[in-house]
């Protein structure tokens, strides 16, 4: 009975969504805002990847809000997972052994590769697909792989928190610098350079570097909390 009701609910939901989607001009969207951004973005931000200029320049405050949400989620997860005072007797004090030879050798091989790929994705966010969020996840994966191979050698929580705090503060600091220069908050500053060069697009690569370090530190801290 319960399953039948859920099935009917799903069919109704799908019919409603199909009815809505049939009225939309999908495939030939008029895109009023999008067209304006596509025309002005290369000249205004100097970034070849227009999604990057939307994320960091036109909707920069939104990205700041996203970083705040991610920070809150990671902090609350750490808070919830921290051993409570009453659970002290149940603390597992068993020694952590390193993984086998294959996993250790594989992680030694993968760690520098993942680290350089992560920084490549972060630093080329204004030229190619990618950026701080994707590269930050790859950076977190690099640290997580080495943590899986050697559980005894944990990344220090103080270092993670320090990197995260500095990255978040520098993101806001770049935004405030634009404010001091007479522009709006998080408006791109610095020289735009030549389109398509690595050092171009003003402050956007710096903002993405801050985002990448913050996301990487947050997620590796979260994974370490979950793996404990």
């Amino acid at each position: 009975m319960h399953k039948l009701a859920s099935l009917l609910f799903a069919i109704g939901l799908a019919a409603l969504l199909i009815g809505l989607a049939a009225q939309l001009p999908l495939g030939m969207t008029p895109m009023v805002v999008g067209q304006a951004i596509l025309e002005q973005a290369p000249g205004e931000t100097g970034s070849a990847n227009i999604v990057t200029s939307v994320v960091l320049a036109y909707r920069g405050i939104d990205t700041l809000g996203e970083l705040a949400i991610l920070f809150a989620a990671a902090t609350v997860a750490g808070l919830v997972l921290a051993p409570s005072i009453h659970a002290e007797s149940r603390l597992r004090a068993k020694p952590r052994h390193d993984a086998g030879l294959v996993l250790r050798a594989g992680s030694d091989l993968l760690f520098p590769l993942l680290l350089s790929v992560g920084f490549y994705i972060v630093l080329h966010g204004h030229l190619t697909p990618g950026g701080g969020f994707q590269g930050g996840v790859v950076l977190a994966a690099a640290f997580f792989v080495s943590f899986l191979a050697r559980p005894a050698r944990q990344p220090s929580h103080v270092g993670i928190v320090l990197i995260e705090a500095l990255a978040g503060a520098s993101f806001i600091g770049i935004g405030l610098a634009a404010l001091l220069g007479g522009g709006a908050f998080l408006q791109p500053v610095l020289d735009k350079g030549t389109l398509g060069q690595l050092v171009s697009a003003g402050s956007l690569p710096l903002l993405y570097l801050a985002v990448g370090l913050k996301v990487g530190a947050e997620l590796s801290g979260l994974l370490a909390h979950l793996a404990e």
């Binding site: 994707q134 996840v137 997620l219 979260l222």
Partner: peptide
């Protein structure tokens, strides 16, 4: 951009979490 994010976050990190 979205494809790269979904592959890194949705297929990789979310499974690990």
């Amino acid at each position: 951009d979205v494809a790269l994010t979904e592959a890194a976050v949705g297929a990789g990190l979310s499974g690990a979490v």
